[in-house]
Design a protein around this nucleic acid. Structure first.
Lengths: 232, 232
DNA sequence: GAGTGGTCTAGACCACCAA
DNA sequence: TGGTGGTCTAGACCACTCC
């Protein structure tokens, strides 16, 4: 598939992977030292090292000083899961994206939220409800809490820009925790997504942090056909 | 949190991230060239390059020859999603893991499957149904198709070892495509997971490839409380 | 064509940790 | 404490791509 990288460290990575797949170096096996391997491949140690470090970074190998390099017994594979904007998800399917702010109020943080975000109980927060649609069909219903102590969002007009789009632009490089689950639609969700009460909906929950402070908590509800795709 | 890496390329990464967060280099901004930055940081160009390449690999920066380096307008964040074995998921919650093979038959691949795996329609495949439980409570119900043309699994006794555990051990470094979704429990699923008909279940679908050949297709159904957690 | 990032090298010193 | 990987350097040449 990929057009055969010419760089020698790429070639080395490929060769090492091939030896693992063909059980020359089975899971758990010890590899020769960097110096030896570099001599075998006829390259500088730094080149060999770069290949090995990337494989270690990818969870294929395990490197320890003095102990040497070994194939991870159970390769710790990680799926790379991109985090799309709702707008992009909708337009990618060819539909016309539209966004609607359903509610915007100040509310005291409920107990579960203050625990989840590790903030003082009863803190005043901005609570938003939004609906994202494709061709006038509800696509995602969103319940969002914004921590006004960490985000200067009081003056923002969220009828014009979705909270996610605004936050991405103004708070780059925040960290987040994602949770995916399945749940029955309650009154709110069923009404806004236009699905039967109790029918399965896909739920994403996301908590976003910036520099140690919680920024926002979001629950996103999708109609049943929705799915998340990822590659390993 | 992390104990302040001393390596200079780590320090450079941290400094660049800090400048992005503090809007010195806002999203979309152009950075000085590698040579200039290396002079500013007082290090060799290779050291600077390593830091920048890792940031580019992480989706923070965008590097192009001649064009230079810029901050990605919408940082393409990737969640790292580990792929656990069911056994580990169950025991992690403190429960006693048990596994049961419900069915093992040879069947012709249905149309949807041969399309999905890109194999000849009607190919004979091994079809398995498995139940994974924690403390005798159903945890995951699994429907699996195995491509016997790519996997020598005819002689394996899947009553003793779960197909996933066997495949992981015998087919290292395979690629996979993951799909998460929510669906209503049908007769099969409701019966095996012991949940009401039509109630929401979390579904994982996984297709595994090795060296271009499809190995196995799996649908995994979880009880409603289940969720997938991921960090960015 | 020229400027930028991509890669390689040879050598050096350092930091960690199993024996 | 010795061997292993981790990092840095100075310099070189290459490859891509924008102008």
């Amino acid at each position: 598939m990929s057009p055969a990288p010419k760089a020698s460290y790429h070639a080395i990575k490929a060769e090492v992977l091939e030896r693992i797949r063909s059980q020359v170096w089975p899971p758990g096996a010890m590899l020769p030292g960097d110096v030896v391997l570099a001599r075998e491949f006829g390259c500088a140690r730094s080149t060999l090292t770069r290949a090995m470090q990337e494989l270690a970074h990818d969870g294929i190998l395990e490197r320890k000083r003095k102990a040497g390099t070994r194939v991870r017994p159970t390769p710790e594979r990680h799926a790379r899961l991109s985090i799309p904007l709702v707008r992009d998800e909708v337009t990618a399917s060819g539909a016309q994206y539209s966004y609607q702010l359903l509610r915007s109020t100040l509310r005291a943080a409920p107990a579960w939220l203050s625990t989840r975000l590790d903030i003082a109980p009863g803190t005043q927060m901005l609570f938003l409800e939004c609906l994202h649609s494709g061709d006038a069909t509800p696509f995602q219903y969103e319940q969002r809490w914004i921590n006004l102590n960490a985000v200067a969002a009081q003056e923002v007009d969220f009828t014009q820009i979705s909270p996610n789009a605004w936050l991405v632009a103004h708070m780059p490089l925040s960290n987040a925790e994602l949770v995916f689950s399945a749940a029955p639609a309650n009154d709110d969700v069923a009404g806004h997504l236009d699905v039967p009460l109790g029918s399965p909906v896909f739920v994403k929950e996301r908590v976003t942090w910036f520099d140690g402070a919680p920024l926002t908590h979001t629950r996103m509800f999708y109609h049943a056909g929705y799915c998340v795709v990822s590659q390993i």
